[in-house]
């Protein structure tokens, strides 16, 4: 379960303070597939970085299964990102000179899983995201965009996270491929009971999710109509 309570993030510029996230509160049950919609500059990415412990909130609390990550020291944050969070990025962000499988094995290596187990699990995950066997040992930079995003999703799943945060996961893909990726996320969400929060400006994508929020000028509101 993800609970966000009155989270504020402010940056000081030369003459004034800007608050891309200004008092955001919401909560998601475990296994929810949710979307946050907003225009560029609405604070979507900032909110995502706070939820993923990539950055610290100025005030407010983010609770993951009751643990307040806003209060964790840096060393615990590394462990939190490793064990409880999975990231999927718009630019995929795979390590280009590693193979698809090696990319998926990376978070498990950080978690200290033995090599043999890493290899087996990585192959399983790649099969789950429907990447064919012959692609497993191909270098990441030799894969197509859709294939790279599949590898990236498998990597996000590697350590069985409670929460997967996806930042514009279909932003660099054509509509058809984007739709396949959304379907994949949706089925994984229900299959593995993982909370998936997708940040997007793509209305079509958002329509596939269980819950939708709109972020505007740092404030969040749930879109209730369908």
């Amino acid at each position: 379960m993800l609970e966000v309570k009155d989270v504020v993030k402010s940056f000081k510029t030369d003459d004034h303070t800007i608050k891309p996230v200004n008092g955001v509160s919401f909560s998601l049950e475990q296994g929810t597939f949710a979307a946050i919609l907003g225009k560029s500059g609405s604070g979507k990415s900032t909110l995502l970085s706070l939820l993923g412990a990539l950055d610290k909130a100025t005030s407010g609390d983010v609770l993951v299964d009751g643990v307040n990550i806003s209060a964790l020291p840096d060393s615990k944050l590394t462990a939190y990102r490793r064990d409880d969070i999975g990231f999927v990025f718009q630019q995929y962000n795979l390590i280009p000179n590693l193979s698809a499988k090696e990319n998926v094995m990376l978070p498990m290596e950080f978690a200290g899983l033995p090599r043999a187990k890493r290899s087996v699990r990585a192959a399983q995950l790649l099969n789950q995201v429907e990447l064919t066997e012959d692609m497993h040992n191909r270098k990441a930079n030799k894969l197509s965009g859709g294939q790279q995003q599949r590898v990236s999703i498998a990597r996000a799943l590697a350590n069985n996270p409670k929460l997967i945060l996806a930042d514009e996961p279909t932003g660099n893909l054509d509509d058809e491929t984007g739709e396949l990726i959304i379907e994949l996320l949706r089925s994984l969400c229900h299959e593995k009971n993982t909370t998936i929060l997708v940040v997007t400006h793509d209305q079509a994508l958002a329509r596939k999710t269980d819950r939708r929020f709109r972020l505007a000028r740092g404030k969040i509101s749930e879109i209730t109509h369908h």
Binding site: T78, R82, N93, L106, F110
Partner: peptide, 15 residues
Amino acid sequence: REIGVLKAIGASNRS
């Protein structure tokens, strides 16, 4: 960026 990715997926500063 790549270092950022490694940190985001759980690599420690030391490794």
